[in-house]
Amino acid sequence: MTLELLKADNLGAVQHGFFTRKGGASSGIFAGLNCGVGSSDQTEIVAINRARVAGAMNVDAGALAGVHQHHSADVVTVAAPSNERPKADAMVSNTQGIALGILTADCQPVLFADTKAGVIGAAHAGWKGALDGVLARTVDAMVALGAERSNISAAIGPCISQRAYEVGPEFFEDFVAQDPEFSRFFANGQEDRMQFNLPGFGLHMLREAGVQNAEWIGHCTYDDEARFYSYRRTTHRGEADYGRLISVIRL
């Protein structure tokens, strides 16, 4: 099956893709393009999937950079191919031929580009990373490489939608404790539960960081099982593990 990658109009001609689960070699609960090296899927199958992604991005498998994601606001600069996966949740680069790949399964994959300066970025932004400032820190790291905030475009890929993202009162309190205005990203749910607008919050944080050209390309990972993996869907079903989607950008 052919790989399926979704594009963001506002990233223009820069080579990028939010890959769906279609076209991969994994089977069972991971069926499709599982690129999660931290999953319990077969290591060699994940390597095949990642090699297919690298091929689709016209780079060698070794040039597909990744990080050991841990829901932080940590950002690393990638200058050359490496087998290392430093602990971080975002990457930036100004090196031709390097592809930055972020893994998600409900969290926001965010791809950045300043085509004039030749600087790109990729971030994994779940609720914690987004609240802690991973998106602003990615922009700061791009600026350190020569990007201009006014020239940076950012696109949020498929992630969990507000309708599917039920949270408890403690979650809501964490947000409004930081800024009471953040209450606008929540809607009332059943009883004391609320529905959180993750991509809406991501767009807000991007604009606060000076990125005015930002968009969410849509698509709810929870609702569309044929195309996307979802941590929350897996949790609701009591399954043992879940696949990870990959989103990639390169110069």
Score class of each variant (00 low, 15 high):
Ala144Val: 10
His71Ile: 15
Asp224Lys: 06
Pro109Lys: 11
Gly62Cys: 09
Ala73Trp: 12
Ala144Pro: 11
Lys128Thr: 15
Phe112Cys: 12
Asp132Cys: 15
Tyr229Cys: 02
Asp174Gln: 13
Glu239Asp: 05
Arg52Gln: 01
Leu11Thr: 06
Leu6Asn: 06
Phe19Lys: 05
Gln108Ile: 12
Asp192Gly: 01
Pro109Asp: 10
Gly126Ile: 09
Gly101Glu: 02
Ala164Leu: 03
Met194Thr: 09
Asp106Gly: 02
Arg50Asn: 11
Ile156Glu: 14
Asp106Arg: 01
Thr138His: 10
Ala136Arg: 15
Phe18Lys: 09
Val53Gly: 07
Leu145Ser: 08
Thr115Cys: 05
Pro180Phe: 06
Ile160His: 02
Glu239Phe: 05
Asn94Phe: 03
Gln15Val: 08
Thr104Glu: 03
Thr77Arg: 12
Leu103Trp: 07
Lys116Arg: 14
Ala13Asp: 09
Ile217Arg: 00
Phe171Asp: 09
Arg232Asn: 13
Ile217Ala: 00
Leu111Tyr: 12
Asp174Pro: 08
Thr115Leu: 04
Pro158Asn: 01
Ile160Asn: 03
Arg237Val: 08
Leu100Ile: 05
Pro199Ala: 04
Ala54Met: 08
Leu145Ile: 13
Ala147Glu: 07
Pro158Thr: 04
Phe30Asn: 00
Val78His: 06
Phe201Ile: 10
Asn188Trp: 07
Glu173Pro: 08
Met142Cys: 13
Ile48Glu: 02
Gly200Arg: 06
Phe18Gln: 06
Glu84Arg: 11
Ile217Val: 03
Ala122Gly: 12
Asp74Met: 13
Phe30Glu: 00
Thr138Asn: 11
Arg232His: 14
Ile249Met: 07
Ser161Val: 02
Ser183Thr: 11
Pro109Gly: 15
Tyr231Thr: 09
Ser230Trp: 05
Thr221Asn: 03
Lys7Phe: 04
Ala73Thr: 11
Met194Leu: 11
Ser39Gly: 02
Ala177Gly: 06
Gly12Ile: 03
Cys220Val: 04
Trp127Gln: 12
Asp60Val: 10
Arg232Phe: 15
Ser93Lys: 10
Leu198Asn: 07
Asp60Gln: 12
Phe201Tyr: 14
Asp224Gln: 03
Ser150Tyr: 10
Gln212Met: 10
Ala61Phe: 12
Ala155Ile: 09
